[in-house]
């Protein structure tokens, strides 16, 4: 059983590896699909309604049906890591998550799964973040992590990590949509899309924090979400990744979405006034060909829907 899954996964990983060799050519790959809108790398939208933000951003990226086909199993991976309420901006905005779920369902997804390996007790985080309730109402299967579903995956391109435990459902999904929330983080300075992928990891994750910049990129060489939607509706500017103080939360009413996870993070860094190239993990990701961090190399389309 496990063998088949793993083999299947390795195929995917291999393909991903092949894709990775087309370093920096992601725009061209997208362009080859012949969709005019897809020549854009990043969609940056401002609006006070989270659902409108999501819809607009995904439309700008070519529409949800470009990514989610009928019958697909979709995994939406928000950040549900902490026992915090949405206003504290430590967990992904539940309205953002719910709208993604609704779009996937509309596109014919057979199943939209949501889970996260939390830092505080899972039941409390699922409840307090409101993601369990609001996303379930939108039609998602919100489930807790099963220890049994972690499987060891080798990381052929890993520098520090040669293998790690990944969550099977995230690996096996037809479509993986990463929905991080933009937050301050003392170690990596900011936590965005690449770091949000830690939520599908098993094992002693604390160990990843040591040589973090290299290890987080190692992880992201074997798992690549089809879309990354960065929730910057409320941004935690300091004392992240948990926050707690509402004075540290800045209302930005923004979403940054794209296919290139590194590009999304690079733009996300600018929300904090940082230069992408100054962030270790982004520099590392770029140098290893995971994506683009030079914003002037990217085609960014902005939509300000503010009335």
């Amino acid at each position: 059983m496990g063998v088949i899954n793993r083999r299947k996964f390795l195929e995917i990983a291999g393909l991903a590896g092949v894709a990775m060799t087309g370093i920096g050519k992601i725009p061209e790959i997208l362009g080859s699909e012949g969709n005019a809108a897809a020549t854009m790398d990043l969609a940056v939208v401002h609006n006070s309604d989270p659902a409108t933000l999501v819809r607009t951003a995904i439309d700008m990226l070519g529409g949800i049906s470009k990514y989610v086909k009928k019958g697909n199993v979709v995994v939406v991976k928000p950040n549900i890591g902490w026992n915090r309420v949405p206003e504290q901006a430590a967990t992904t905005n539940p309205e953002v998550v719910a709208e993604i779920v609704r779009l996937c369902k509309k596109a014919g997804a057979s199943k939209v799964q949501i889970f996260d390996r939390t830092c505080n007790q899972a039941k409390i985080c699922y409840l307090r973040s409101q993601i369990e309730k609001i996303a379930s109402e939108a039609g998602a299967d919100v489930s807790h992590i099963y220890q049994q579903k972690f499987q060891n995956v080798s990381i052929p391109k890993g520098k520090e990590l040669k293998s790690w435990e990944f969550y099977r459902d995230a690996i096996k999904a037809d479509v993986l949509i990463n929905v991080p929330i933009a937050k301050h983080h003392s170690l990596s300075r900011v936590t965005l899309g690449l770091k949000n992928m830690m939520g599908i990891l098993g094992g002693n994750r604390g160990k990843i924090h040591n040589h973090f910049d290299v290890k987080i990129v190692d992880i992201n060489t074997v798992i690549k979400p089809q879309i990354t939607i960065l929730d910057a509706v409320r941004v935690l500017m300091d004392n992240g990744p948990q926050g707690g103080n509402l004075n540290d939360v800045k209302q930005m009413d923004t979403i940054v979405a794209g296919v290139d996870p590194v590009a999304v993070d690079a733009y996300g860094a600018t929300l904090f006034g940082l230069i992408p190239g100054d962030l270790g993990f982004l520099k590392e990701a770029h140098s290893r060909g995971l994506g683009e961090i030079n914003l002037d190399q990217l085609k960014i389309e902005k939509a300000n829907l503010k009335a």
């Binding site: 026992n83 830092c119 983080h185 003392s186 170690l187 604390g206 924090h209 040591n210 040589h211 973090f212 990744p241 948990q242 707690g244």
Partner: peptide
């Protein structure tokens, strides 16, 4: 070497 897991979890 960097770590800061404790700081990250401090509520």
């Amino acid at each position: 070497e960097d770590c800061l897991v404790c700081e990250e979890h401090c509520p």
